[in-house]
Design a protein around this nucleic acid. Structure first.
Ligand code: MN
Ligand code: MN
Ligand code: MN
Ligand code: MN
Lengths: 240, 240
DNA sequence: TGACAAAGTTAGGTATAACTAACTATACTA
DNA sequence: TAGTATAGTTAGTTATACCTAACTTTGTCA
């Protein structure tokens, strides 16, 4: 029933609504100058945004007048603020992120997280609170866990072997050919010389503008144009 | 040391890097057409983005050629993908969000969450996993908790009394004046008549274009211009 | 080989969201 | 009530990120 409708507003416009809503606070009005300050934009940018919000029926705006939100505007603003608070609460009270950082991140993320995620997040906060009442302070436990393993910077995503184009290898470095891109035109020429995947080669000299590149492989010496080299994907050796 | 530097890229450019990185997968090359498809943009948009990425030294791009990422481009792309995966993992495995939705939300949020939040999130996933090995399956417990209280749609943020401008009130509705905005010019005239905060009034008739608005208050009848009415903030009565 | 389809680019356009500089309205104060 | 400071607007510009339509290059296959 009372579902929050797709507001379809840009992050920027949502932030204007949020700022107006927050500034209005007790007085229900916001001044252009304060909106500008709170969003860190020029006053003229606020004028422009207000015109758009008015056209969308979200703000009551007349030039040189105070600004208020329409009912529709208030509803959207309240929803943005709600998301902001839920996300912030999770970051601070569950994850233990520093308040300032959490606020900033939340005010960016609030525009990207849909109702499914937000409702789960809210529920999760409730879950943590309930547990803490039952004697198991999850947030506290987590804080202790964090300290015990200070930085775990890896994540088991797909591991990428760091392959680069031969044109990016510096002189003196050895590397192994992983793959040669394309088979027609200039590249055909390369492939036809013994340059095949698996070959180890060493970059000898690179001309000032990266063209040409001299490499040594299988005893031969070869001069490659940068354009050609860029199509030879290599894996760096552990030299250097 | 090996700190990921501020890449300072727009969300859009990060997504291009991410798409190229993912498409490259085994072959290390990506084709424009596939980048376009995976991001849902026109082919010409890809050309534009590639030019920018090249200028920034992140992609090896020559017109009509395959695309590869430079080392710098790969590093940033890998970081974006890492964030994407961490966020997705949290949404799916901890919060229990549906996979598709989680992926979409993660691919938006990955551009807004900084290293502090991401590292805590990663740590939290580890925390949940460790507990589950120790017999306490937090994610599972949470799932059960979610079901037990289906929808808790409120959040203890600041509660806003729903005040609107008098110009938004429909005929027949009663409301209470909460505040009158401004004191000079036309508004002074209003304030000078017994129209003060606390007064209960009822909207009687609204002309076709919302101007003028006839209201009844304290036995009097008053005709207000829309401009004036918009400055009278009221709280709606429970009629209608 | 050469015709054709597919891939890629260019040109030209729109929308959003900023900015600065210059102007105008409003509010305060003497 | 005039004069000034402040607030707000307008005009004109920039940058990003898309789009469609038309054109060019490339790869394929008869
Ligand atoms: Mn916010
Ligand atoms: Mn925000
Ligand atoms: Mn992503
Ligand atoms: Mn993304």
């Amino acid at each position: 029933m009372t579902a929050i409708k797709d507001n379809n507003l840009s992050a920027s416009l949502e932030d204007y609504l949020e700022a107006i809503f927050n500034l209005a606070g007790a007085s229900n009005v916001a001044r252009s100058k304060d909106i500008a300050k709170s969003l860190g934009v020029a006053r003229s940018s606020v004028t422009g945004a207000l015109r758009v919000l008015k056209k969308k029926g979200l703000a009551n705006y007349r030039p040189y007048d105070y600004v208020t939100l329409t009912k529709a505007g208030q509803d959207i603003a309240a929803e943005v603020v709600r998301k902001h608070n839920i996300i912030t609460s999770f970051f601070v009270n569950v994850l233990g992120v520093e308040t300032d950082i959490a606020q900033q991140a939340a005010c960016r993320a609030e525009h990207t997280l849909g109702p499914e995620v937000i409702s789960k997040l809210l529920c999760f906060i409730g879950f943590v609170n309930k547990n803490s009442k039952n004697g198991y302070d999850l947030a506290d436990e987590f804080k202790r866990f964090c300290k015990s393993r200070p930085q775990n910077n890896s994540f088991s995503g797909k591991q990428m072997s760091s392959t680069v184009g031969l044109d990016e290898v510096k002189p003196g470095q050895k590397c192994k050919i992983v793959r040669i891109i394309g088979r027609s035109g200039v590249n055909k020429r390369i492939a036809d010389m013994g340059v095949v995947p698996g070959t180890i080669l060493e970059v000898q000299r690179v001309a000032p503008l990266g063209d040409p590149i001299d490499v040594k492989l299988k005893g031969y010496r070869l001069s490659l144009r940068k354009e050609e080299a860029s199509k030879i994907m290599v894996e760096l050796g552990q030299s250097e």
